[in-house]
Design a protein around this nucleic acid. Sequence first.
DNA 1: CGATTCCTTGAGGCATCTCAAGGCAAGTGG
DNA 2: CCACTTGCCTTGAGATGCCTCAAGGAATCG
Lengths: 263, 263
Amino acid sequence: MYTAAQASSVTPVHFMPRNGFAEVPAAGAPLQAFCSSCHLKDLCLPCGLAGIDVERLDGLKFARRRIKEGQALYHEGNSFGFLYAVRSGTFKSTVTSRDGREQVTGFNMAGELMGLDGLAHGTHASGATALEDAEICAIPYAQLTELAAGGAALQQVVSRLMSREIVREHSLMLLLGSMNAEERLAAFLLNLSQRMKARGYSASEFHLRMSRAEIGSYLGMKLETVSRAFSNFQQQGLLQVDKKHVRIVDHAGLTRAFEMRVQ
Amino acid sequence: MYTAAQASSVTPVHFMPRNGFAEVPAAGAPLQAFCSSCHLKDLCLPCGLAGIDVERLDGLKFARRRIKEGQALYHEGNSFGFLYAVRSGTFKSTVTSRDGREQVTGFNMAGELMGLDGLAHGTHASGATALEDAEICAIPYAQLTELAAGGAALQQVVSRLMSREIVREHSLMLLLGSMNAEERLAAFLLNLSQRMKARGYSASEFHLRMSRAEIGSYLGMKLETVSRAFSNFQQQGLLQVDKKHVRIVDHAGLTRAFEMRVQ
DNA sequence: CGATTCCTTGAGGCATCTCAAGGCAAGTGG
DNA sequence: CCACTTGCCTTGAGATGCCTCAAGGAATCG
């Protein structure tokens, strides 16, 4: 669990002169500066847009920013101004109840958009913290709406992404409300597996970026229970677990564990 | 709990000739047909819009529809085409897991918008069922976006409503993930109380439209546990409960119960 | 090499679930 | 009008899954 002290520093935004670098063949620094040529364009904001609209996206002047492990991208209550697209690394989103209980509401990886909850009241309702060194695009929301006013397609994409977030939270509620510990962990791992696959990584073997406590917080259980569930899955021959390294041995079995309650 | 049979009938849409009725002084039937003169305009879609934009909303040709108690407004998987604004009555939204477990994800009352989750994949990710005889406005989403293309303000409103839904679900996740039975029920009742108040009803005395089982499903607990929590609150002198009629006797005490974990 | 963090595992306790019985109110049919 | 059904709620008693507390191991870091 990250302490308040760790989370209380916010890295400054560094605006990159994107146009200047755009034509550089490829050295080390900003590989793609435009949405249209980003390797994440099929996952990220441009997803679903036709050629012409993607090019209009290139009109966005957004900042790139590096976030170190444990640092906050934004805090609960910070004023809303940007949407954040993950370029690399993993984040957790958290909400805090008035009495200080913190709960993880989501994990975000490359190509996923964060900060959509800030739109409601102009301040972020959740905070985002990097679980490993990461890089994001900070998209000024005002610019995005301005751009969207020109053509409906872009606005549609943003709306659809928000809707997807709602749907995602629906299934999380289903999980939190009606599944037992092992079902929850199985669901979590299968979801992670699928997202890794979509990003070109192995669907069966990956490295967890989050601690047992963070997984537990996300799934509504204690870290010890998470640990025990991992051990059980390993004993059942569904997983091989070594600390944060997970290998899914029996994908079908894990799926069954996830649907156990079915007669 | 409603059976599948009850929920499987969907009432047809009746388009009302709104212009024809608009000028009728006020008899019994459609009292307001335009958003600009709707008594719910401060809660519903027009909320936050300036005069000129509200008038543009009047350009929307939407259907009014009556839904009988127990009937579905739409089902999970139905193709998405409309947003629904509640005019009167109460709805529950539910999602179903592949193995048939149903979970209530929300209750909606007058002025609230339903169906936003359908935008993500073009089909509704949840179903909506009337808990009492109800009336809704069915807003064609295509028309809404068309209208929104003209001015950014309207699109902003829709986006903000979606964002609000995300924020709402965040706090529900916090509830499901880290509160005990009594805290959950207290949070639920306080939320309900506040929404009743916002609609001009008493904040301290109201009629529950949902069964114990539905409350339990929403809060991630069994109906017996809901019932016991009600009884406990009554014994503690926080509530007076008679079946579905609830009176909040000690609002501050209930708030304390909700924040109990804060030593 | 000690301090720290994270994970695992065990033992016991407790909150909630499960199962069961009964009450109340509304609806139904004789 | 009354017996009967049905749906919903309440309450009790026992079972259980998860939490709590505690101890110890492994990896990382200064």
